[in-house]
Nucleic acid binder design. Structure first.
Lengths: 240, 240
DNA sequence: AACCAGAATAAGTCTAGACATAGAGAATTC
DNA sequence: GAATTCTCTATGTCTAGACTTATTCTGGTT
């Protein structure tokens, strides 16, 4: 809750500049003093001021351009960062027992739409698996995953039935790029059956795909149990 | 799409270290050479190596501790950052005409649950307003907002009917802290009517609250039109 | 008025060196 | 054996100074 704010000169400067912006002393679009001036004001080296201002620029609070100087961002964009942790940890942290069951697994050619979206030739054969994650024996989330064994040579197909694919991937297949998207979908009959709910219930659905240098690793549709909320705390606040 | 990666020595080092991790040269939990050694290897100052490693640590790829050294993170957490832009911009960027209509506005005491969540005394009177954002005359999103005029002294109640509250706030009331959460809800009768859809349809719903040093500024429930997707690209990838 | 070249400027980056500080591991004491 | 203190090390941070680079601005040219 409280700002962990490890004190450091750069952090102090950043906080003071932030304060001036938040309290309206420096208004949106205003040009703020340049690094050299601030360095004098705060009795710091320019590099330190630079670091402080970069922190704020990363938070989207400042716009900085060479020669043009530093300005207070006009339409600050709201950024929020979500942390998607491993399901098992999430469940266990809530004090519930975690279990996992593979519902189906087979090789299957990728449908055209998906292939295009993740950058594969249509018809390429991937492993498709459905699994359910339980919290205290109640279905917690449902995953429908496509796995590209070519991008994860060390993962044998046979292992998949035993392993929690998500966990294996997190631990063993670092990715270079990831995309995520949230949407809401009405549970279809299968969703409802697997999640133990009624068809039509609104489900929060997360799509995630990851790539490494060998190509797409996996793409997954995760449907959460009805009522699930994914939250974050974020923005305009010291990150670390 | 491509890594914008402005080349810089620090960036180059970070990319190389990232490569070694992704390609398994350095495995999870491994201790990597210390800054001094890497500085020699890459013929750079230690400060530059430090900057490079801090970048990766921010991405969650490395764990760094004084004396203990730097290790490859064991269970990398998936972080993703979402950018919530101003509705109007979002709509206009899609080439559609934006409009906005206030459906209701009145002063109202905060219900207990909400008061507790955002840190107000129960019964405090806030302004509550409902509004619809349209894209090409089709309802795009629905907002149900509570506004604390005490935290935004310059905002007169009378203005609210004219203004787009969200935009006014973004431009004029910088916040210190924000919380966001996604969920999925079945449209109730009112949602459906205002969004021009059928009751029961799954809606992606975003809750957002913001605070400044005067207290809570606003809290809002945003319901998107059915089928709406909020996406991101993120993680393990250079931020900027 | 439109265009172009050069000067000036502010941020971007790097370096070498210094000191601060957390914390692991060893040595010491009880 | 457990607890405490000590020591040393790797990261954290800062500094002063230099050089680089993008971009604005200015003034001159067509």
């Amino acid at each position: 809750m409280a700002a962990g704010a490890a004190s450091s000169k750069a952090r102090t400067i950043a906080d003071e500049v932030r304060r001036r912006i938040v309290e309206g002393e420096w208004r949106q679009g205003d040009r703020i003093p340049d690094e050299a001036d601030l360095a004098i004001e705060f009795d710091a080296a320019r590099a330190t001021v630079n670091k402080a201002l970069q922190l704020l620029a990363n938070d989207g609070l400042l716009d900085r351009r060479r020669k043009a100087g530093t300005r207070v961002t006009v339409d600050p964009v709201r950024k929020a960062s979500f942390t998607i942790s491993i399901v098992r940890e999430q469940v266990e942290q809530a004090g519930m027992a975690y279990s996992y069951r593979v519902v189906a697994q087979r090789r299957s050619p990728v449908p055209a739409g998906l292939a295009a979206r993740i950058g594969l030739k249509q018809g390429e054969v991937l492993v498709r698996m459905r699994a359910i994650h339980y919290a205290d024996d109640r279905p917690f989330q449902l995953e429908d995953r496509w796995l590209n064994l070519r991008a994860t040579p060390t993962l044998a197909e046979a292992d998949l039935r035993q392993l929690n694919a998500n966990e294996w991937l997190v631990r063993n297949a670092p990715y270079l790029r990831a995309e995520m998207a949230f949407s809401a979908e009405n549970a279809d009959r299968r969703d409802a059956r697997l999640l133990g709910t009624q068809p039509g219930r609104a489900l929060l659905v997360l799509y995630r795909s990851t790539w490494n240098d060998l190509g797409p690793i996996t793409t997954v549709r995760v449907a959460f149990q009805p009522g699930h909320i994914v939250g974050t705390e974020g923005n305009f606040w010291p990150d670390r």
